[in-house]
């Protein structure tokens, strides 16, 4: 049997809101080490990789490895019924055809249970090699969200170029062009506002803004986003979920 209790149920709500427009359905894989998901969007241009560690849950039990197929829109409908301060417990029997979500309000006055039907989903997993990237950039997640939103009003694609002092986002379209530069700034007073660049090689790659805007829906999960770039490789856009795990997005370059 699988049973996991997340005291901060809002985390799960935020994860699902961040990925539900990108992927339609996915298998959630559970084993001893945690709860994970890997899925590509329908055009196979981007990939979502979620991992929530077992020790990030208040209680975690998984007797056998299980894979639970869910339609994200349906999962989202159910999780929207959980309060933001609720604890969420997920339960499923081995070989069961449903997963139960139990929501508990902070004072335990309200307990609700929702069962979601599981489905069989054929999923292809990709092997993502551990790579050393040419450049790793850590920027405030709200800043990244604003940049990709603003640039999408001008163009369809963005060139991200990283040098040792700054990261530059550039686009152009019918009405004109734009570029936004963020300088390295290791703010000690306000660490949440810092921009940090770790570079082996200057790099410049172009990506579709539509996908980056979709990834930015994960902003509420983390104060920072980490971009990992290498020449001719998909970019990694990574949100670290404090004490629990990570939500990573991969996007093939143009």
């Amino acid at each position: 049997m699988f049973e996991a209790r997340l005291a901060q149920g809002a985390l799960l709500k935020k994860v699902v809101e961040a990925i539900k427009d990108l992927i339609e359905d996915a298998n959630f894989d559970c084993n001893n080490s945690g709860f994970s998901l890997q899925a590509m969007d329908s055009s196979h241009v981007s990939l979502v990789a979620l991992s929530l560690r077992a020790d990030g849950f208040e209680h975690y039990r998984c007797d056998r490895n299980i894979s639970m197929g869910m339609k994200l829109a349906n999962l989202s409908k159910i999780l929207k019924c959980a309060g933001n301060d609720d604890a969420i417990t997920m339960k499923s029997e081995d070989n069961g055809d449903t997963i139960t979500f139990m929501f508990e309000s902070p004072n335990q006055e309200r307990l609700s249970e929702f069962d979601l039907k599981l489905m069989d989903i054929d999923s292809e997993h990709l092997g993502i090699p551990e790579a050393e990237y040419d450049a790793t950039v850590k920027v405030p997640s709200s800043e990244f969200q604003r940049i990709v939103k603003d640039l999408a009003s001008i163009g369809d694609t963005v060139e991200i170029s990283v040098t040792k002092d700054a990261v530059k986002f550039s686009t152009s379209g019918d009405i004109g062009s734009a570029n936004i530069m963020c300088r390295q700034n290791k703010s000690v007073d306000k660490p949440e506002e810092s921009t940090e660049i770790d570079i082996n090689e200057p790099v410049a790659l172009t990506f579709a803004l539509r996908y980056l805007n979709s990834f930015a829906k994960a902003t509420p999960l983390s104060p920072h986003v980490v971009l990992k770039l290498s020449k001719d490789l998909p970019v990694v856009v990574e949100y670290h979920i404090p004490d629990v795990g990570r939500l990573g997005f991969y996007l093939a370059p143009k």
């Binding site: 890997q38 590509m40 055009s43 196979h44 241009v45 981007s46 990939l47 292809e124 997993h125 990709l126 092997g127 993502i128 090699p129 694609t157 172009t206 579709a208 490789l233 998909p234 991969y250 093939a252 370059p253 143009k254």
Partner: peptide, 14 residues
Amino acid sequence: KASQGRLESFFGPA
């Protein structure tokens, strides 16, 4: 306009 690659051209099956 630059073409959009698919992820399979970068990563193999797991």
